[in-house]
């Protein structure tokens, strides 16, 4: 792994098109600012991994018979009240 030292306000550039800037330090939290083209998805790693796991758990080879969903009634909107 490449390890670089940066101070708040300093950046690194990846592949000439993605900028990661250290915005500030707040205790043990580092705030990063990321500028990336919109075709580059950016995710927090732990969130990415849990959603990836969930998707892999959900994917199926078959279309089994489905249960009946008990639909929740929509909330009463102010406009609907008389």
């Amino acid at each position: 792994m490449l390890i670089l030292s940066r101070k708040p306000g300093e950046s690194i550039i990846i592949d000439g098109r993605i900028t990661v800037r250290v915005m500030r330090l707040e205790g043990d939290v580092v705030k990063l600012g990321i500028d990336a083209p919109r075709d580059v998805p950016v995710h927090r790693q732990e969130v990415y991994e849990e959603i990836q796991r969930s998707n892999k758990e959900a994917v199926t080879d078959s279309h089994p018979p489905l249960p009946q969903l008990i639909v929740q009634p929509p909330p009463a909107s102010p406009a609907a009240k008389k």
Partner: peptide, 24 residues
């Protein structure tokens, strides 16, 4: 419910539904 099936092999599927029916 709806199935969201891959167009190409391995043609696996995901079951999807509107979240608003589950949690208005």
């Amino acid at each position: 419910f709806m199935w969201m099936q891959m167009m190409d092999a391995p043609r696996k599927s995901f079951l999807i539904v509107s979240p608003f029916l589950v949690m208005p």
